[in-house]
Design a protein around this nucleic acid. Structure first.
Lengths: 197, 197, 197, 197
DNA sequence: TATGAATGAGCATTCATTCAT
DNA sequence: AATGAATGAATGCTCATTCAT
């Protein structure tokens, strides 16, 4: 009987190592060797878990997306206004984890130009998020069935726009500033924001 | 007498070739060989105009930024509302040229993690744009001296947020939708939009 | 009590798997992984039966040679002319099994340049076969003690020469053509060929 | 103007280096690095002249074939008997050059199982040689139009059979023995051999 | 006995870069 | 100014091999 290893766990560890590297030093630094070393393994082990680099990158992106999704607050028992606010705040790069997710996303967006599979993953993740936000907007009374998509697009635009500026101007956007601009925009759009966390 | 070549023109051509490749196939495709070939030259010629790849990428980014700046409408004789609107619309990837600029920007952002010079170029460009938008917001009466920075940040967030969604979901954001969402947001924020182009 | 496995049988199965791979896809395809998989096992099991790849290849070659030897007709009660003919025909790649043996032989010959052990195995097998054919030639009256080696060399040359052409020009040498050329040559050399199998 | 290099000459040099390596140490030793080093260059230069290893191997084989063909004596003014004899002797591995050609041929035959292009090159070369020998056999009166193919096959079989034995039993087949067996066979087949070189 | 995780050297190939011309 | 030959380091990947289980 061989050494028992949780294959999915190992893949997750390796994908996370890749994400750290991408966030820290850019996508060009995320070579097979470096990713393996970051995870404390060797190249041979890496290719044991991922057929090739493309699969590693795709998995890294999908794992990062899944991680973000899993951190949404539980729907049951939370008022939709709080859910919506938390979801949009969740899109801001206010801590290392969220910053890392944005760096992975940006890197994959740049890569997606020559990689349909990556482009698909991105499109689908976006559609899912837009649908989720649209549902919440309706629950909050911010949108009707007919304009949910545009309202969601607007809300997401606000959060993503702040995120992009934070990414483009590191140091200029501490967490508080990000949240303040988001809250003021949401207030303008009619979402009453009560004090939080 | 040696062949007279406009050095700056050649550099611009090469930088533009690099930008096309980045937009078309991602940053990994923009190798020295490919960039040279895209411009109809050979590697040797490329290194004649750029000391190394880093300089090529930096120049490509700065050229793309300068190109965007140069397309702002002339300040003299244009009402500030129109200038502001045009500037924000100019940030949307509504045509091939603007799309290319965004792809270059995204690629450089991803690269900037490991490249301070690129990060600087990005920061400075953003600061300049934010200042320009802040001034216009004050001219329009949308902001006071005291809150110009936050108002500018909000306005840019709206435009960039739409841009990011368009980039992440190619095909889902035709030019008209981008403009419509932008205009509706600006109206909410108090900028009266008159019919245009 | 551990599972009882016939070690020699397993080695033979693995060597045969290696031979199949070599014949089917060339020697480069016969990696440890592929050989193990072809035999329905894993690499770990393969290295259990063979110290290293070199031993596997050597065993594969020797097993293929032994297999060919074991298919010589029984000497007792068979006229030497029939024995000689059958032995020479046995060298022709007229069926899958013999084709496989030739492919293994060729692969090992190519490999033997850098592998003295392989070269030895080849030399010895050849010497044994030449001796056997020489003895039969004398029994048939085709050779004296003094010229048995040269007569044997001549006879083997004919068979091997046909074999090589068949290998080099797959499709152009159906079994019948191989046998016909061999028989006509043997007739010229004085061996009367009677109808057979 | 760049350094002027005769591209075809360089390719020939590299292919010859590959052939030397294959003959000396087997095909596994003919890695890109080793071939480049054997030719006094580096890997990068090798890939400058050959797109990939497959092209290098194919070229090496074809160059070896062409080299053999180019060493046939001039047809004009030579009696067909001498031409035929020289051609068949040319197939024997009696010197380093011919030995090398045989090793390359054997290696490619082994490789051809998984490489149609290599198999094609082999087939065509064989067909050409068989046709050439058939024509000479008719010119010598050894064959009619109807049986030229079979006579050629027989003649080639004799030479190739000797060659294979020489390859399989290095040291046991000095040039004189190879020629002696060939001549005796040809005499049996009706070709009068006059004294030669 | 057999597995498969892990290693690390080695592979073909690509790349930015240099330089004689 | 421009070429393209050549370099050598680095890349993604494969391989034989080892070993705890």
């Amino acid at each position: 009987m061989p050494k028992v290893v949780d294959v999915e766990l190992r893949r997750a560890e390796l994908a996370h190592a890749a994400a750290r590297l991408i966030a820290r030093s850019g996508i060009e630094a995320a070579t097979m060797r470096e990713v393996a070393a970051e995870a404390g393994l060797t190249t041979g082990a890496l290719t044991h878990y991922f057929a090739d680099k493309h699969e590693l990158l795709l998995t890294t992106f999908q794992a990062s997306l899944a991680r973000r999704r899993s951190q949404r607050p539980p729907a049951a028992g939370t008022p939709p206004e709080a859910l919506l606010l938390a979801s949009l705040e969740g899109a801001l790069p206010v801590d290392d984890d969220r910053w890392m997710h944005w760096m992975v996303t940006i890197a994959c967006c740049s890569q997606a130009a020559g990689d349909p599979e990556l482009a698909d993953a991105q499109s689908q993740a976006y559609a899912e998020f837009a649908g989720y936000i649209g549902d919440l907007a309706r629950a909050c009374g911010l949108a009707q069935r007919s304009d949910a998509a545009e309202v969601a697009a607007t809300l997401i635009a606000v959060a993503d726009g702040i995120a992009v500026q934070a990414l483009f101007h590191p140091g200029g956007w501490p967490a508080e500033r990000q949240r303040a601009v988001l809250h003021s925009m949401l207030a303008t759009l009619g979402l009453t924001v009560t004090a939080r966390q």
